[in-house]
């Protein structure tokens, strides 16, 4: 069994209104050192596969078909055994 961790993030060219609102709130807290906030999604999957390479392929397929919308989002996969 492999554990896959997926980070889905808005593509850099896309404005992130939620990140902007959080950034604004952080400034109100006085954390002016924070220069930018981008908010994404973190998804964990337990995958049954014969090896790590196959597990990664399965998760990639899950990402491109459902978990991320590549029109506006990027994804990054890490596999742990």
């Amino acid at each position: 069994m492999y554990k896959a961790k997926v980070n889905v993030t808005l593509r850099p060219s896309i404005l992130d209104p939620k990140g902007k609102a959080a950034h604004h709130a952080l400034q109100n807290l006085g954390l002016n050192e924070v220069q930018q906030v981008r908010i994404g999604k973190f998804i964990e999957l337990d995958v049954e596969a014969k090896d790590e390479k196959t597990a990664k392929e399965i998760v990639e397929s899950a990402c491109t078909q459902l978990l991320a919308n590549e029109v506006m989002e990027d994804f990054e996969i890490t596999i742990e055994s």
Partner: peptide, 17 residues
Amino acid sequence: LLEAGLIPGAMMHNEKL
């Protein structure tokens, strides 16, 4: 329909949330 790929593009949160 966007998600199904019948129309191009995607929807994001309203700019002012």
